[in-house]
């Protein structure tokens, strides 16, 4: 990981396909509702599905983009638009 993001939990779902990345994200959020979760995924559907899931569950997608190592995308999902969001 070359990213420097203020996350509490990282969920690496690279290599798994829809709907598994969203399920893993939902699982992490259920286990740690207060945590900011960094999800890593390379399923092309995740680019659409993670923002849509966040809207459905009123989570905040603080950041989304390349992981920087050429292996998929990262999605930083926070419970609310808190201070950490302003760091970015």
């Amino acid at each position: 990981m070359t990213l420097h993001l203020p996350y509490d939990v990282v969920v690496d779902e690279r290599g798994s396909m829809c709907p598994m990345p969203v399920i893993a994200l939902a699982r992490a959020v259920k286990q740690s509702p207060e945590a900011t979760v960094l999800l890593l995924a390379d399923d092309p559907a995740a680019i659409s599905d993670i923002p849509a899931w966040c809207a459905m569950r009123t989570r905040v997608l603080v950041w989304a983009g390349d992981t920087g190592d050429g292996r998929g995308h990262g999605f930083l999902v926070a419970p609310t638009q808190d201070d950490r969001a302003h760091i970015l």
């Binding site: 559907a45 659409s48 899931w53």
Partner: peptide, 9 residues
Amino acid sequence: LVAMGALTH
């Protein structure tokens, strides 16, 4: 679905 920003799965 992608253009709508909808859940695709």
